[in-house]
Design a protein around this nucleic acid. Sequence first.
DNA 1: CTAGGGTTAG
Length: 759
Amino acid sequence: MSVRQVQTLRAFDNLNSNSILTLITKSTSISQTQQVHAHILKTGHSNDTYFTNNLLSLYVNCQRFTDAESLLHSLPNPNIFSFKALIHASSKSNLFSYTLVLFSRLISACILPDVHILPSAIKACAGLSAVEVGKQVHGFGLTTGLALDSFVEASLVHMYVKCNQLKCARKMFDKMLEPDLVSWSALASGYAKRGDVVNAKLVFDQAGKLGIEPNLVSWNGMIAGFNQRGCYSEAVLMFLRMNSVGFSSDGTSISSVLPSIGGLEDLKMGVQVHCYVIKMGLECDICIISALIDMYGKCRCTLEMSRVFEGEEEMDLGAFNALVAGLSRNGLVDEAFKVFKKFKRKGTELNVVSWTSMIGSCSQHGKDLEALEIFREMQLARVMPNSVTISCLLPACGNIAALVHGKATHCFSLRNCFSDDVYVGSALIDMYANCGRIQVARVVFDRMSIRNLVCWNAMTSGYAMHGKAMEAIEIFELMQRSGQKPDFISFTSVLSACSQAGLIEQGQDYFYSMSRVHGLEARVEHYACMVSLLGRAGKLKEAYNMMSTMPVEPDACVWGALLSSCRLHRNTSLGEIAACKLFELEPKNPGNYILLSNIYASNNRWKEVDRVRDRMKYVGLSKNPGCSWIEIKNKVHMLLAGDDLHPQMPQIMEKLRKFSMDMKNSGVSHDMDFVLQDVEEQDKELILCGHSEKLAVVLGILNTNPGTPLSVIKNLRICGDCHSFIKFISSFEGREIYVRDANRFHHFKEGVCSCGDYW
DNA sequence: CTAGGGTTAG
């Protein structure tokens, strides 16, 4: 003990206890508190509730909750004041569970709480989202009459808003004798946060009638609420309205409205707000900087975005995260990765958002292996992933059919209780479907307690991509019966399922119900499904006619669906029209040339096959190793199609034999053996064409043949439909396979992948 | 004892 402390203690000796307490009640120094404690013990006041309560408050002031707690325990007869300070302080320090423990101990000690303690307990319920406990406290307040206090009423409104029980909050608010500004603000912004635009506006516009004058916080709460819920235009309108009634926006208003401006991609307004920020000298506010970067990123102004970032002196993680997200949003994944690596090297402590946005950026841009690698690094860096991280990582596993990693990620989310999240659930369904495990996808789907549109769509499209049309339709119908309205994506999946199953009438009914029943205007991908639906059934003319009635110009997917159907039905005239258009739209896609040459070959028109080959060379596809193999591919196609009944089969076979000879002479192997031999050549691109089911069988053979080291194929391109692909992937039972073919997944996502489509 | 408002990842 220092000399000074001894002197202080001596000084205390000369004072009576009362004067000590009045002298240092406001003390926050722990040493002084301990000295007083020593003095109380010495002077024999330790059993005196009055003195101990005051001492307890001193410990609370010093944030020494454990010391205060042991004092509380030592008291033989605690009273309301013994609890008061601890309850208030613990609630203020967000130690909500402790607050509720203290509150229940108070009740068990038969001490009646007062109107000051109740709000703290209610605040704790709000903080814990413990609405059931909150209701009990409310009930207690009603029976004791304490709930009539305006502070208590206001805190109840707040609690119900925080617990998302807006109906209770509204009832409580309407019952208040003197509705106050704070409760009113909380209620209105609560509605906004929930996306209930109607009620938010209703309550907000009640202000005048209630004699409430909105202040800056009220306006900001509304803007932030609408922004959080994605009601971008409402947020911007609030911001404009606020300015028009003479409120000048502060940093909070700006950082809340900027993401909405970005969401609306309203660059003009974004720039205006940026100017205002500079004028008001707010450009040093880190939240505003992050929001500005985010806004410019969403408005596709990557240059301006980087300039705002570079102008910043102190490196802020939020700004860095916004920059990475902005770069990746604009397709500049490599740039994003560079920035990410630079900051990692610098030793910047990256948080979950940084890691997650980098993982998401990779998995969305075909860098799936990198996404998995970054996830591994993230764990090494001991940053705890959350449900968003998992929902970004799962598509990476699905994209490359990395079932082992997908399962590991699933286990990870089970261990960490992320699997209840709807986004994680949907991503799991998608991943299992992409890995050929549709039954597992269904189990995940069935186990979900809450389902949103994304889950239903994932399950429907999963079944559709597996060719399980009846199941896809069943899910689609179940979704509507459960009260979930379908959107564009739901229809794409169900139409694609109908097309695969040849359910023409049902598909047409769904198609027309889109606008008639659901008020959805059919998009180009829906037309592609319809063309495929009709075309597959041999109604090529009808399909072609439908294309001419489309409100939008048919794109490559629609023409591709027609060309595939033409190949299926060996229709040269329409096939030529479709191919001609496709050569214009995507001259570098070898699949279109292959399909057309298949049509010619199946009609025994070999001169035209040669012409297509020349054309391929002309557009620069001759370097494509697949190009010189076109005859073989045709041959494989014919063999697999098993088209023995083809009227010109003998001639075709003759021609094929000749091709085979040529191939042999030029050193290229032929027949079924070619498939097995060629895969042993490293780095070869292997292209397989064929009718889906037959192709799937071949791929199965190929894959299970012990002498076939499939791992040596660096580029495998399959011209088949989704059945074959799925079959291919699922035949790798227990083995890991990585498939990189962004094109295929693009088509999958669009949902127009149909029989014979090329990807 | 004095409540209500901010950025970035799906």
